[in-house]
Nucleic acid binder design. Structure first.
Lengths: 343, 343
DNA sequence: AATCACTTCCAAAGCGCTTTGGATAGACGC
DNA sequence: GCGTCTATCCAAAGCGCTTTGGAAGTGATT
């Protein structure tokens, strides 16, 4: 059943039927009722394809997901971000278009989406320092929204980020206050903007107390469980092992805990752990008292909000630029305690 | 730049340009070269919207993701399935359309996608016993593919599943062979088809050895880390606690391990653990020797294959029904050992 | 009774592509 | 030189919707 058939069935023009269904005022209320009833009876849905072509809007928002064996970072938090964004999309009648591409084709994927006109806007995930995607999207003249920030980006852009520097500065301060002076950092990949900011916060806190920054106890890699484990093993094998560890996500933090416990040490006593907790739904940080002391900010909420803001941007392109900065909360759990007294 | 403009620029008809670009034979090779060169020069991409309308194909495949606080199961394995499916889609020129909806609107979401014509086919995730989506999709006459199976489904369908029963039967046998006679089950939600099959395998193995099935040591819930933890606590609090546990995913297995270690018990010695390992990319089961003894089957591979098969179905609708059944491999890791001698 | 303003509807022109059904021209055989 | 074939190209008709620019009808106003 298409619009023409429906209008013939009703003895009305396509114009009137279209207007009746789309809530335009130029149609008698009685007629509108009749049209809506018929549409419901025949289970009529306008073809999205035709609608897109006519309106010039696809009502779809694109996400480009690069895949490779190296680069799984997106995955960890991705599903929750998507869930949040998807909620917002659904609320506004948008759908989500995912384009999974090889790492080296990411830029190309964005231009394809834009030029083919299959999306009305895109979300940029995991920005790096001076991310090239930002200027590309600006050239392509397609609305886009960055989840995170891109230090030194030449072009301007709309974004939402967590105050990563502040979060890790506070976490480090918290450990310093507990008497820890040797604190390991198990960071994400340094090319990620958020990882650089977190390290900056960590270093700033140390320097503020006159402590030196020791590269030997700073790691950076894809945030997997085994990475957390092996990095921690390396830390604990040092002559002067750290008494506390800062992990960039709950996933490597699980590996940290495994490494600590394997050695018969106790988390929160021999070794304190603080992690960044994205509040991933299936990996909550405990039920009551958190397992890990953590800097917490829900990535699902971020997804919801990014989507909301992007839709606003699409519907009102001349809007003033948006740059939201969320503060992570510091929640105290079981994984931290005072620095052990030196033997 | 659209087709008309490009054809005017070239002094050719739209027909010829279209045919040249789409590889039809009715065009001189020299002309084709000229057209392709011009298209490249102007960075021309045909509008996907117009193309869809003209061809009747959207070149998009739909996934409906229900969200709610109860029901996070999809998330755990979802991102990896998506990554795999996305690879296949990309290879064949398809995109992925995600529709995130409230739990109770899932059925509706499928009919919308089908009737609006925004997708050429859909993937069904996490089927339950006699899943109503299957008959719905059959009515809607849209190609679909089920990841998993639906026992008692009234309608016929194409699917790919892991032999869940066999996997858990083998895992249980493995534990029985090690001398364990009291084995806890930490299963997924029982309304999921895979959970029922896994339980069936577990029970079959026990009964084959004349052992009784004890509901007191069988749990079923959303597969989160805290669930694994609390279920294990409950098991270990029993008068006659199990010496081994079977977990339905690596995520609750992490909670199992936490609960075991919290009590000062040793995994693989005091308590053995086997889990189902979906080979989630960011949560690999160790690097060398697996952390957990597990029944393993890559959900990413499954995604890849499901997508491949669905595309085949779309391009050739009269094809014979497909029903692939994959055997999980049983990999032995550090989490299992002989049953402890009773004190 | 003529004018005006509204309300309600419609015919038709896109949106940018694909595809059908020729048209044209050169090659070929006789 | 004529008919036939093939290679190459084109005009135009969709695909199913939205939207522009009226037209017809209705009632109020003058």
């Amino acid at each position: 059943m298409n619009l023409r058939q429906l209008s013939e069935e009703l003895g009305l023009s396509q114009t009137t039927v279209s207007r009746a269904l789309n809530g335009y005022p130029e149609v008698n209320e009685a007629t509108r009722q009749r049209v809506q009833a018929a549409a419901a009876a025949y289970n009529y849905r306008p073809s999205q394809r035709a609608k897109s072509l006519a309106t010039g809007q696809s009502m779809q928002i694109g996400h480009v997901i690069p895949f490779s064996t190296q680069h799984e970072m997106v995955n960890v938090i991705f599903s929750d971000f998507i869930a949040g964004a998807g909620e917002s999309y659904a609320k506004h009648g948008y759908d989500m278009l995912l384009s999974v591409v090889n790492d080296d084709q990411e830029m190309h994927a964005y231009s394809e989406l834009a030029r083919k006109g299959s999306v009305d806007g895109v979300i940029v995930h995991g920005p790096t320092r001076d991310d090239p995607r930002i200027s590309l999207l600006q050239e392509l003249k397609i609305p886009f929204f960055v989840h995170g920030r891109s230090t030194d980006a030449s072009a301007s852009y709309n974004c939402l980020d967590v105050n990563n520097k502040r979060a890790f500065q506070r976490a480090t301060d918290f450990l310093l206050d507990l008497g820890h002076t040797r604190i390991g950092l198990i960071n994400g990949l340094e090319r990620m903007d958020f990882a650089q900011r977190r390290r900056a916060g960590y270093e700033a806190a140390l320097r503020a107390r006159g402590l030196s920054v020791d590269p030997k106890i700073m790691h950076s890699d894809e945030m997997t469980e085994p990475y957390g484990h092996s990095a921690t093993c390396a830390l604990l094998d040092l002559e002067d092992p750290p008494t506390a560890v800062l992990a960039s996500s709950i996933v490597p933090a699980l590996g940290v805990r495994r490494a600590v416990e394997e050695r018969g040490l106790t988390v929160g006593k021999d070794v304190s752990i603080i992690c960044f907790d994205d509040a991933i739904s299936y990996m909550p940080n405990g039920k009551g008292e958190p397992i890990f002391t953590a800097t917490r900010s829900s990535v699902r909420d971020a997804g919801r909000r990014c989507a909301e803001l992007l839709i606003g941007l699409i519907q009102n392109p001349d809007q003033a630029p948006v740059a939201e900065l969320w503060e992570a909360e510091l929640v105290v759990g079981q994984s931290t305690g005072p620095a052990p007294q030196k033997g």
